[in-house]
Design a protein around this nucleic acid. Sequence first.
RNA 1: GAUCUGAUAGCUCAGUCGGUAGAGCAAUACACUUUUAAUGUAUGGGCCCUGGGUUCAAGUCCCAGUCAGAUCACCA
Length: 512
Amino acid sequence: MHHLSEQELIRRENLQKLREAGFEPFPSEGVDVNATAREIREKFADGDSTYQDVTLAGRLMSKRIMGKASFGELQDSTGRIQIYVSRDEICPDEDKTLYNEAFKKWFDLGDFIAVRGFAFYTQMGECTVHVREIKLVSKSLRPLPVVKKDDEGNVYDAFTDPEQRYRQRYVDLVVNDHVRDVFVKRTRMYSSMREYLNAKGYLEVETPILQPLYGGAAARPFTTHHNTLDMKLYLRIANELYLKRLIVGGFDGVYEFSKDFRNEGMSRFHNPEFTQIELYVAYRDYNWMMSLVEEMVEKVAIDLHGTTRVQVGENVIDFKRPWKRYTMYEAIQHFTGIDISEMDEDELRNTARTLHVHVDGTMGKGKLIDEIFGETCEGNLVQPTFITDYPVEMSPLAKKHAGKPGLVERFEAICNKKEICNAFSELNDPIDQRQRFEAQLELGKRGDEEAMVLDEDFLRALEYGMPPTAGLGIGMDRLAMIMTNQPSIQDVLFFPQMKPEKDPSQVKETGE
RNA sequence: GAUCUGAUAGCUCAGUCGGUAGAGCAAUACACUUUUAAUGUAUGGGCCCUGGGUUCAAGUCCCAGUCAGAUCACCA
């Protein structure tokens, strides 16, 4: 038990007093809620006969006591509504304990209450529930931060400390109403994409998170151990190779919202666990997939905001189709004026140095191009833009370009200076795929901790034959950041990863 | 991993040259039957993140650490 503050002690005393007076602070029966705060505020018109017998439940968030009458605010999942409580109405008989003691003294801010009454407008024009019955349905033993707003919408004493907000998201959600909106939008984003993909007939599937071999991306994995099988397992870094096995198995289109895990650095854009949607569609290529991405993300923007235009920080991002398309070479030429398409490795390295791009001796041609692009182009791309045709060295799972040697049929969409998706015509030539894996093994031997491992079962699947396939991955967290205008990945994850708080057992015990 | 910034009451924050710990909201008590950042009066509430050091004296200065945020590096 932690040290109890003065306010916590008072709440425990109030709980005891309620019990002694016969008001059970944690009753077991339910509440027949038949209205919400938002519904009443939006639909109740003064003088009409609606909402004349409503039951609401939620937290008591403020109390303004004026003798025999009081105002308060009840907050349910839809928002707040004012309640009016008068002594002689909730206590029609001689015994005024419910009002004088329980409501005025023992009900604390944050307690869950249920009220039954009727809607009306006060003289001040505030939509209010006139309470005839009030009941405590669950006691709150800790004081919530009290955030107040005035008529002009100015917020006072906002609960803003990021550490507390992330560690105690439940408190953040109770007192910061905009936080709820972010997560509701995030979920709506998922529904919007599901709707879109299901309408096309693609199958939502689930594939293993615990994998004996990790693959499908270049990243360091988390490892774990299965006791009964006595084997090492990895938490997936991607589900690509499993979804492609399903295309081998005969599905035309499969997708999965995949929680992936990467044991790497953390930042505003990186959480150790994050979510991607991956989608694979048979008999399609990357050009076709580009159109799908445009259409789907445009739909997401409209479903969330009613428009293709989304405010993100200082910028308004317009997801209206079609998006700009550059090949990687064109993008570099556009932003630097230099045509690198015919350059060999030495020329690329010199160009990189001229552009003040950091290079080292281990970088091959593909890596050099990627570095030049990342340094000179990405930061300029605010509006959604497709970058196509990547160097083969960087893309061991993508099909070689039909007409451009050294490149693969791959694209990324860049938006707000960050990659939001990655897609390619999937490599389905098992012999080529084996060679690409072997090249990765070489990188691994040279110490590249992120090199891919050779997946013999995946190759076996390809050898049975995989139709030409277009594949896509979209970072759901990154997209959610854009769609909800949040600066940090932690703001779109309910429970972002944090170091543990101070060991509670070392906190000195006192009190009771 | 590097640099910078921060940690003081339940919340948001002040705290001067190193000299008894402050405000607003919240809490407690009283008043008040249409208030709304309700109001008025009074009252209580602190391991100043942790551990060392300097000093007659440390919330304040110095060193080390913990946690967090930002920037950079790393990284799909």
